[in-house]
Computed example of a mutant assay.
Amino acid sequence: MFLAPDGDEVAIASAAAEFLADAMPIDRLHGADGGDMGAPLRQSLGEMGWFALALPENQGGSGLSAVEHVLFFREVGRQCGPVDVLAQSLAAMVATDDTMRAAILSGEAGVALAVNDGAGLRLLGSPDATYALHVSREQARLLSITDIVAPARPALDPATSMRVAEGAAQAPVAETTGEHVWRMGELGAAAMLVGIAEAALDLIVDYAKVRETFGRKIGAYQAVRHPCADMALRAEAARCQLWYAAAAIKEERGDAAVHLDAAKHLANQAAIANADTNIQLHGGIGVTDEHHAHLMLKHALVLGKLFGSKRTLLGRLVNSKVED
């Protein structure tokens, strides 16, 4: 990759797009129980090796890089894929036991993402998860949650179920120190957000080509064209910074963390703004439950809070320096 995917990287992105459009289409979120990554979908992803893309070969992975990681999760984002797809991939990087890692990679054992919630943990992901992954910049811990009482809570995002476990602190079954897992999580979340920004743009562009008012396609009006151009600009800026951050991590640049924070910030902005504009430009149909538009906005709002929110990212970037 030289600032843009090429060769085998394009082939991986195309394969991921085709597979996910069939196995995990955004249409599933209009069903009663279509949002979670249940065992069948998890095992299907595992069989294809998607959880193991950036894992070293000596640990049962594909031995690829951060570049392939973002290409896959960008396509996950376009389908509003659940957060635990990312948690599953990261958990394989934390597992130290070969049997545990194999169960995670195959999808036999599910992994939810754990975030702090007062004295307890908020678990994002499928209710049948065996483990929960708690990640900070300094360390990543894999917790067993089979014996934890965690009642379900209403979730803003239909793509990701939520439970709250009070007093869930316990000894981890596996842990690792350093920033690697956090960086791959931040990179994956940024890629999913870029995917949402692009999907929102595609949705309104397609609609503007067929919807007519006063005898003309709405895409002929500046009031629609100009916001679409702004959406394209935001998506392009976020996508380019994402490619650069992935390449910086792959090449182990000293300023990779700076480029990654910039990528996540631009992705947060692009996804939320594009999803919101998409709803506005669709008019009345854009606010209906049957349409995809609201799903993208809700998913973007959740992902925007994971692995770096606006205040945290800007606080880190304000005093950061990049290499020449």
Rank of each mutant, 00 (worst) to 15 (best):
S62A: 15
L64A: 11
L64P: 04
L64M: 15
A66N: 06
A66V: 01
A66T: 05
V67A: 11
E68V: 12
E68F: 08
H69K: 07
H69F: 12
V70H: 00
L71R: 09
E75Q: 14
E75I: 06
V76C: 13
V76S: 03
G77W: 01
R78D: 08
R78F: 09
Q79M: 14
V83C: 05
V85T: 10
V85M: 13
L90V: 06
A91W: 08
A91E: 07
A91V: 08
A92T: 12
M93D: 09
M93C: 13
M93W: 12
A95I: 01
D97I: 04
D97Y: 03
D97V: 03
D98R: 11
T99Q: 13
A102I: 03
A103M: 11
I104L: 14
L105C: 01
L105D: 00
S106L: 09
S106N: 04
G107S: 05
A109R: 15
G110R: 02
G110L: 05
G110F: 05
G110D: 10
V111H: 01
V111L: 07
V111C: 09
V111R: 03
V111W: 01
A112N: 07
A112M: 12
A112T: 10
L113F: 12
A114M: 13
A114C: 11
D117K: 15
A119S: 14
G120L: 10
L121R: 12
L123A: 04
L124E: 03
L124P: 00
G125N: 01
G125S: 02
G125A: 00
G125R: 00
S126Y: 05
P127A: 09
A129Y: 05
A129V: 11
A132D: 01
L133D: 04
V135Y: 02
S136T: 15
S136F: 06
S136Q: 12
R137M: 13
E138W: 07
Q139P: 04
A140R: 03
R141Y: 07
L142Y: 07
L143T: 04
L143R: 03
T146V: 10
T146W: 10
D147I: 10
I148N: 04
I148R: 09
V149Q: 14
P151Y: 08
